[in-house]
Nucleic acid binder design. Structure first.
Lengths: 333, 333
DNA sequence: TTGTAAGCGTTATCAG
DNA sequence: CTGATAACGCTTACAA
């Protein structure tokens, strides 16, 4: 069996076959290039015979933009991030951009990823990481790559941020519980150092204090379903149990709900009310009906793509804040 | 404000700053290249001062492999595909490959995607599409790009397939229901032309017939949660209702379960047993505990990456079959 | 409208 | 070990 050598045909191959110059081939595949119909036809025939597709790499080397955008993400298990990735990818592709996907275990593993990404001369990077330290953000600056980051508060140059208004959401969650007359409240944290979760907690607590209520009981998860389960079990070891719990994200809220219902045989919302964050699809399912804050992924990702395409990234780093919408469902009665 | 021009520094820039030749810079960043420590130090100092990262593009143009692999996917809403993407990306990256992500609405929209992918000279393409027609597969051949496809049965050259043993799973599902003594069964289809779902149905039906049972009641969804809901509602319009339902995937099974429980006030598994396919995380959650077939994403993706890295793709197109594991949970009692 | 030739930033080859 | 030089496959002046 002959091992085919899988070489992409070049414009020169096409030119030779068509009996024209290499420039003619280039022009055929360049918009608005002046070329006669006759020549173009000859070239197209030869091109399709060889299965020729122009090579984007030389153009990039000549200083054109690569039309590649890297998306750095920490995982797709959380449907929220899967959806962010889905939206971003579709929007970028519809604008003629390619997506270079970089899956990273943690903020720490980002260094190696940056090196790789930079080698391919991407035009920009979108970070959908839950945690990004100032130090890490600086590395992008060092690599001279413009960055758009979600839920991140570094004020490094080259780094633009698009954030959810977490503090205000935390306050709204508090109000919802207070209006229901609940007096004993709890908060389930995400992993440490996640700026989003810190703000959600601060807003929530601030509002409770303002209303003369005690600070919430606390427990910590890792943003996962089982993390939420563990956090709830841990919280229930206290003498005092909350009757309303605000969770830093939906996945943990769903885990907490399931432990309440299936392990502790308590009823949601009759015994305990729950609020989550992200409004992932599952939260609307009939088995859960979780009250949650919708982050409006549609506009967050649109703004990100706008920033990249308008090439505003070279200018001052900006921070865009998007207000989440509270979606009330049965988990709060 | 000065608009920075965001130009990546070149090896020549580094060479000039370090006072050495451009070759020296290249050698510094090439493994196993012979260069003195003294020179290397000088180069590294200059490189880090400028934030230099070698440009991968020229090397690719010189015939090196691009170390880019495209993943074509139809969406990440289904956690199964999100997980496939996650595994593939991690494995490829750990082998030094970059991932070019291509999100496609349907098999039909693949043409444009192929053109774009080909321009970037990827080494191979992994298709995680639920549906891929022979015609589409041929387009990859035409573009001379080696392909590894999941759950696809085209026998085109350049296309390798990794499939779940759907027929055998369908038969097992039938056996499970039969062993429980259920006599009235149903099947919820995925979208038409999805080869996986057709085989699951065939195996299921075959086995029923073999055991002298009537063919299952049928209804069709679109692989989504709400599609499963609609399919179940539709199925319940029949006079005859099934007491056991095999669904072409988990998402539809979960939708069907929720309609049974929350809309029809029936109990699972007491009134109706349910079996799904994919064994997504949610299926193990306390609120569902769905019996399902695990596709072993770990080995499917490993095999795919092996095929790509060993460059076996140039040879005969092969079909690898992986046997799914039945995970019994409470939805079947 | 067409062809020729320079140049993009590397790696690989070849002298020194 | 080191530096010059020729590719790689395009795009873009420049010439015809």
């Amino acid at each position: 069996m002959v091992k085919s050598n899988h070489r992409y045909p070049t414009s020169t191959d096409v030119a030779r076959l068509a009996g024209v110059s290499q420039s003619a081939v280039s022009r055929t595949f360049t918009r608005d290039a002046s070329i006669s119909t006759a020549l173009r036809e000859k070239v197209l025939a030869a091109a399709s015979e060889l299965g020729y597709r122009p090579n984007a790499l030389p153009g990039i080397m000549q200083g054109q933009r690569s039309h590649m955008v890297a998306i750095v993400i920490g995982g797709m298990y959380n449907p929220f991030y899967a959806q962010v990735l889905d939206f971003l990818t579709r929007k970028l592709q519809s604008k003629g951009q390619q997506v270079l996907l970089s899956r990273v275990e943690s903020d720490h593993a980002l260094d190696g990823a940056i090196d790789q990404i930079a080698r391919y001369r991407v035009d920009a990077v979108v970070s959908a990481l839950a945690v990004i330290t100032d130090e890490t953000a600086q590395k992008f600056s060092a690599a001279r790559i413009p960055v758009v980051a979600f839920n991140n508060h570094t004020k490094a140059s080259w780094v633009n941020s698009i954030n959810s208004d977490n503090v205000s959401a935390g306050r709204h969650a508090a109000d919802l519980f207070i209006d229901k007359g609940l007096s004993s409240l709890g908060f389930i944290h995400g992993p440490q150092a996640s700026p989003a979760e810190i703000e959600r907690f601060q807003g929530f607590t601030q509002r409770l204090i303002e209303c003369g209520m005690p600070a919430p009981l606390e427990s910590t998860g890792d943003y996962s379903y089982s993390g939420g389960q563990d956090a709830l079990r841990h919280m229930w070891k206290n003498k005092k149990k909350p009757t309303g719990i605000f969770c830093a994200n939906d996945l943990m809220a769903l885990g907490a709900m399931d432990i309440l219902r299936h392990e502790l045989k308590l009823s949601v919302p009759e015994d305990v009310s729950i609020i989550g964050y992200d409004n992932i699809d599952i939260s609307s399912w009939l088995g859960y009906r979780l009250t949650s804050f919708d982050q409006d992924i549609e506009s967050m990702t649109s703004r990100a793509v706008e920033l990249i395409l308008n090439n505003d990234l070279d200018r001052d780093s900006s921070i865009i804040t998007i207000t989440p919408t509270l979606i009330k469902r049965e988990s709060t009665g």
